[in-house]
């Protein structure tokens, strides 16, 4: 509780508290309604989706039927998509977070020739449009025969510039230069200092980057869309988008409408759960990046 808050338990303060809480509550309804809609839609039959009010449940509770359809259509391809998403995003996230941590450590704790140039390059990389990168990458990887393989999605995702900046800011703060020098005086080599002293100290930062990289990959659409064209290799994002366009174009039958929403529900539950469980990490970590900026 802040001092300013404490300073006045006056009528004005109480009125402001009601007013501001009401404003936040309104925005909360806006934030929450789409998520609530996913839940109600996933419990309805296709017929009810069109004939009952969208923001409430229908009399006929069809969630289990919808889940069954979701997991059985096209020989259980949705399960495959989930596994693909988990596989692509966890491997990419671990690799990207490790590389970002090494690089951030180098930027934070060493002076070396070319440092400024490299930082500028990494920062400039953020401005490059996806198409400018992904399309030539596709052409190159297809020459190497790597498109339609998990590597086509994982390898490019190992480059995660925001992670480098976050780790740079975090390490700069969390690990003092004297600590590293103490390690040098103790005779430890640079890698030994990193692995036995620094790494455990930068774990909170590492966890943040890991979560952010994981979410970025979990949410990625354009890269797998371009790189993969076999449906059984799709991640959820590409798969669901395709299901949706089948549903709306009518070719797959109107049957798919609720299934798409059921798929959406199933795929966001783990990410939201992960965020809620790990909120200690991302709140602190995002803050570090923001304050440094």
């Amino acid at each position: 509780m802040s001092i300013v808050g404490k300073s006045a338990h006056s009528a004005k303060f109480r009125r402001n508290r009601w007013l501001l809480t009401a404003i936040l509550s309104l925005y909360f309804i806006y934030t929450f309604l789409p998520l609530f809609y996913v839940i109600t839609a996933a419990t309805k039959s296709n017929q009810d989706l069109f004939s009952t009010f969208g923001l409430w449940f229908a009399a006929d509770f069809q969630l289990w039927e919808n889940l069954e359809t979701l997991f059985t259509i096209q020989d259980g391809i949705f399960l495959k998509w989930m596994a693909n998403t988990a596989y692509y995003s966890s491997v990419s996230a671990i690799g990207a977070a490790l590389f970002a941590t090494f690089a951030g450590y180098a930027f934070a704790k060493y002076t070396f020739f070319g440092k400024k140039l490299m930082l500028a390059l990494v920062l400039g990389a953020v401005m490059i449009p996806q198409t400018a990168l992904v399309i030539p990458m596709f052409l190159m990887l297809s020459n190497l025969g790597l498109t339609n393989t998990p590597l086509a999605v994982i390898l490019p995702s190992l480059v995660f510039p925001p992670g480098v900046f976050l780790m740079w800011a975090y390490i700069d703060d969390a690990i003092s230069n004297e600590l590293i020098e103490a390690g040098r005086m103790d005779g430890a080599g640079e890698f030994h200092i990193f692995s036995s002293i620094a790494f455990r100290m930068l774990m909170p930062g590492f966890a943040t980057v890991l979560i952010l990289a994981f979410v970025a990959n979990w949410n990625n659409y354009f890269l797998p869309l371009v790189m993969l064209n076999k449906p059984d290799m799709f991640p959820i994002t590409v798969g669901l988008a395709q299901l949706y366009s089948t549903a709306i174009s009518g070719t797959g039958g109107v049957l798919l409408f609720t299934v798409v929403m059921t798929g959406a529900l199933v795929s966001i539950v783990p990410v939201i759960a992960a965020f809620l469980i790990m909120q200690r990490f991302w709140q602190g970590g995002l803050g570090a990046g923001g304050v440094k900026a």
Partner: peptide, 26 residues
């Protein structure tokens, strides 16, 4: 040579014993 730093620069994740042993283990 040995050095004592202004901020002490003790390894925060190690115990006192591990702090003192580290250089010898290296």
């Amino acid at each position: 040579l040995s050095m004592v730093f202004q901020s002490y620069a003790l390894y925060p994740t190690k115990t006192v014993r591990q702090n003192m042993s580290f250089g010898l283990e290296v």
